[in-house]
Design a protein around this nucleic acid. Structure first.
Lengths: 158, 158
DNA sequence: TTATATTAGTTTCAAATGAAACTAATTTCA
DNA sequence: TGAAATTAGTTTCATTTGAAACTAATATAA
């Protein structure tokens, strides 16, 4: 019979830092879990990656956007947006239309196909969020939402 | 004079999903910000990466751990731990001692040098956390902590 | 025993990432 | 004007990542 390995003894040092209660560690672990789950769903069911989904989400919300607008609405950098848009265009989910006023720009839109896929993904994304948050109270959700916004603003300052 | 580009119009579609209030998006953005800040601090001031820091944090807390223990305590996978330990050993921050009872195992510990570095990093990490959380109330912190634990457990189930 | 399975940890390899360099178009200003 | 600077977006390249294959040691079972 194989013995279950015991954990090594805890350090009695009062100044040791508990990773489990260290906020940056906590959100990193949670985010990784959530991202991995969602990424798997998006790839398996819709054949797209998370950056691609985010671009579609941004375009679903703000149609006829330039790549710069997409950068602003997705939190992705311009390299990621450029790549995601190229992949989505290959897949027929988005189309680019050059701006005749300024030919550096291109307006990006969901195609009919892209809009159909988008409408399929939205409820799946919402359902995942709902299941994830199912065990916390509406009050906690409101606070979580407010606190995350606050901390995101704060983190940008630091 | 260059015109400030206007945002494209919002989609009137009621079913559009707001990325900004979508929980997986919110934590991803926050986590990226926080990780980037911390990663820069750790590299600039201590010459280590976040995975290396996490291994040091785990060893500071739970000395004489095997790589498997470190995996459990850091949320890193075994590849990341293997690499981080190798890098930390090169830098003289940790040392490996083979387990004579089972030579597949090696016990890992902070060296004197590693412990010194660890003791320098801990207050810096705590100070960052403190500044980040400075604008939220103790009540909010408690709830945030509880909710993140709850959601992490929940995310693992899903 | 000895062959098979399991476990600890490392290495390999292909894909994802992002900083920096680049192209093309437009704006600024001398 | 037209040369220099700026902006939008793409490409390149070096680094990071993690799944899968691998090595070595131990445990299990025939």
């Amino acid at each position: 019979m194989n013995e279950i390995p015991r954990n090594p003894p805890r350090n009695p040092d009062e100044d040791a830092l508990d990773l489990e209660t260290f906020f940056p560690y906590q959100i990193t672990v949670l985010t990784k879990q959530v991202s991995n789950s969602l990424a798997k769903t998006y790839v398996d069911r819709f054949g797209i990656t998370i950056p691609e989904w985010r671009v579609m989400a941004a375009l679903g919300r703000y149609p006829n956007a330039t790549a710069s607008h997409v950068v602003r609405h997705t939190g992705l950098d311009k390299v990621q947006v450029s790549r995601a848009v190229a992949l989505l265009a290959d897949k027929g989910h988005v189309a680019r239309r050059p701006d005749p006023e300024d030919r550096r720009n291109a307006f990006i839109n969901l195609t009919t196909r892209g809009r159909t896929t988008y409408r399929e993904i939205v409820p799946v994304a919402r359902a995942y969020e709902e299941r994830l948050l199912a065990t916390i109270t509406p009050e906690q959700r409101r606070m979580l939402n407010a606190v995350l916004d606050e901390l995101t603003a704060r983190a940008e300052e630091l």
